[in-house]
Amino acid sequence: MTLLQPSNALVLWLSLLMVPSSVNMDKPEEKTYSCPVIQCSAPAVIGLPGRDGRDGPKGEKGEPGEELRGPPGFPGKVGPPGLKGDLGPQGEKGEKGERGIVVADDLQRKVTALETKIQVLETELNRYKQALILKKIKSIGRKIFVSTGKEDTFANGKSLCEKAGSVLASPRNEAENTAIKDLMAPSKQAYMGISDEQTEGRFMYLNGGAVTYSNWKDGEPNNLKNEDCAVIQDSGKWNDVNCLSSNVLIICEFSS
């Protein structure tokens, strides 16, 4: 038996609907069973999707959307320092602080202790000065002149004083000149820290400074025999001599 095609089944079903008009209505109604065409027919087949439609007309411009702030980004590199700004207005004066009693008292105690030590040292120094005066020493102001008791050349005398931390005596005023003169006996002359070895005819102190006080004999200095060094004589007057003279006393000068 061949199955009915869907179109033939539909025709058969329509014919059956027209049959009751010729059937005897007196007969008891018999129950007939039928099935919907859709259920009895073969299952439908899904077709291929259709083509996309054309784009519609452009709509009207919408309202601007609400602006949303995004999360903060990572901090960037530190930029170069800016120019120094103007000085701001002076602030109000603060309240007076408490006095540092502890610190001030401690500092005062230290100062007092130092002052006491200085007084002790000064007393000891004066005592030594008095003892040295009994020897070939003279103290004038802040200077101390010490006679070595030795006669030598200018160069050796300068070296001797330097080793003792001093220089050849150089009087800067009449009082110092007298003090040096009084140390000379029994010698007749003593070297001074004055010469014109650097510039002929221009006597200067050994440190290069210009001579500020002098007591030359009449007609001196005369550079008679290549005389570049200066001596003080037992009269207190000055004279120029040859620096190689070895019968000249060495007197050193200390600054106190």
Rank of each mutant, 00 (worst) to 15 (best):
Q233G: 10
Q198A: 05
N215H: 06
G85D: 08
S214E: 11
V120M: 07
I140W: 02
P57N: 13
N24C: 08
V146A: 14
K61I: 00
T153W: 09
R99D: 06
K96Q: 12
R109H: 03
V78L: 07
K27M: 08
E176S: 02
L10H: 09
G91L: 12
K31C: 04
L249K: 11
A44L: 12
V37L: 15
L107N: 10
T199H: 03
N222W: 09
V11A: 14
K217R: 11
D234I: 12
G79Q: 12
G47T: 07
L160N: 09
A179N: 02
R127D: 05
T112M: 14
P20Y: 06
E95M: 05
V211D: 08
Y213G: 02
E220Y: 09
D52E: 04
Q39E: 12
T148L: 15
K188Q: 13
D218V: 05
D152L: 10
M1L: 11
G85P: 01
V23Q: 12
Q5M: 11
N156Q: 10
A190R: 05
L83S: 11
P36G: 13
V111P: 01
R99K: 15
G50C: 05
N223S: 05
V11M: 13
A210W: 00
K110C: 03
E115T: 02
R202G: 01
Q119A: 14
L12A: 14
N226A: 13
M204W: 04
Y128C: 03
Y128W: 04
K225W: 03
G201N: 11
E98A: 13
V102G: 03
W13N: 14
E30P: 00
C161I: 05
D26M: 13
L10F: 10
R172T: 00
P72R: 15
V111S: 10
E66R: 04
A104D: 13
G59P: 08
S139G: 02
N156P: 00
D106Q: 11
E197H: 06
Q119W: 00
K158P: 01
E227K: 08
K31Y: 07
V37I: 03
G157A: 15
R202H: 06
E92M: 06
I232H: 05
Q130W: 01
F145D: 02
F203N: 15
S256F: 07
T199P: 01
K77D: 05
K93N: 08
E253M: 13
K163A: 13
E98N: 12
E227R: 12
G157V: 09
C40S: 14
N223Q: 06
Y191I: 02
L10C: 03
V37P: 07
K93C: 02
G201Y: 03
P43F: 14
N239V: 01
N239Y: 04
P6Y: 05
K225R: 11
T2F: 09
F254L: 08
A9D: 06
V231M: 12
L244D: 09
N247I: 01
L16F: 04
N247Q: 10
L183Y: 06
P81K: 15
D234Q: 13
